[in-house]
Write a protein that binds this DNA or RNA. Structure first.
Length: 284
DNA sequence: CGGCTTTGACCTGCGC
DNA sequence: GCGCAGGTCAAAGCCG
């Protein structure tokens, strides 16, 4: 059944170096330019080009040809990015006090009441979220030329949703890290202008080591904090990355180690279509 | 049987 | 206020 619906099997998800195509895009190639800067810098944890201070909306599905267009809502989410404190997933966004009390009460209720309470609990949680202005985690997007949607990155993910994206025939999938205390999420979607490109957007920071990759290599050992998943990604796709636009925008330092091949790294709140070279979407 | 995916419903934010 | 789109929840079902 699932297979009929185009659902990928585990084999499909297997990382596949073989799944990657040769790069046909005129990206810049940093592979020869090995500097000391790592992914941490790329994360923009320090500072980065204002070009990338864009809300990462939904976006990449919307064809846009404007070059370096000034975004309308530049500053709204900017603070989230520049925040040096990478949003800690387990930050007390949801207090357990009231819900515990509710659970206590629920034990003495009828099914209907319980159902009602359940709804109330839900609402309480939502209202708390609302009160917190729904802070978003810093986000980082990878663009990878790949046939598989869900690229292996060393962590285990559970899919919790899928939505059709406006202006795109490809749905967007939502994944959450399966680790209990880890609130890292990621979204996976395909570029509708170039279906061979998968855009993976990470949100948050892993609070645990990768269950798949036990050891970190030289590069990975340099990584920590918000760059962790990137290092994992790198470890898995230890190939060449080609980056365009980003470097010219100042986001990517001009000297870097090698990157996962064919992966364009986008800063969290960067709007994809503004960052990704337009020729990329034209699929020529 | 546990873990995972699917999928419809629901909620929230935002623009008009 | 309304409608739309994105994001999340959770029940149901599938699979190893």
């Amino acid at each position: 059944m699932r297979k009929m619906m185009g659902v990928k099997t585990k084999e499909d998800y297997a990382i596949g170096s073989s799944s990657f195509f040769p790069c046909n895009y005129p990206f810049l190639d940093f592979s020869e330019d090995k500097g000391s800067l790592g992914f941490m810098e790329l994360l923009g944890v320090q500072d980065y080009s204002p070009l990338l201070d864009l809300p990462l909306g939904s976006d990449m599905a919307v064809p846009q040809t404007s070059d370096l267009k000034e975004p309308p809502q530049t500053k709204k989410e900017c603070s989230e990015v520049t925040n040096q404190q990478p949003a800690t997933p387990n930050s007390s966004s949801i207090s357990s006090a009231s819900s515990e009390a509710l659970n206590d009460e629920q034990q003495n209720r009828t099914v209907d009441q319980t159902h009602d309470e359940h709804r109330k609990t839900k609402e309480q949680l939502k209202s708390k979220k609302t009160n917190q202005k729904r802070q978003r985690e810093p986000r980082i997007a990878f663009m990878t030329k790949s046939e598989v949607d869900h690229l292996e990155d060393g962590y285990r993910w559970r899919k919790y949703g899928q939505k059709a994206v406006k202006n795109s025939p490809f749905p967007r999938s939502y994944y959450r890290c399966t680790s209990v205390s880890c609130n890292v999420k990621k979204r996976v979607e395909r570029s509708f202008t170039d279906p061979s490109i998968v855009v993976t957007t990470y949100e948050g920071q892993h609070t645990h080591p990768s269950p798949v990759i036990g050891r970190s290599n030289n590069f990975g050992s340099l990584m920590s904090g918000s760059g962790d998943y990137m290092s994992r990604y790198y470890q898995h796709h230890q190939q060449q990355i080609h980056v365009n636009a980003l470097s010219s925008s100042g986001f990517f330092p001009s000297k870097n180690g090698t990157f996962p091949h064919e992966t364009v790294l986008l800063s969290d709140n960067g709007r994809l279509q503004d960052v990704v070279p337009s020729h990329m979407f034209k699929g020529d």
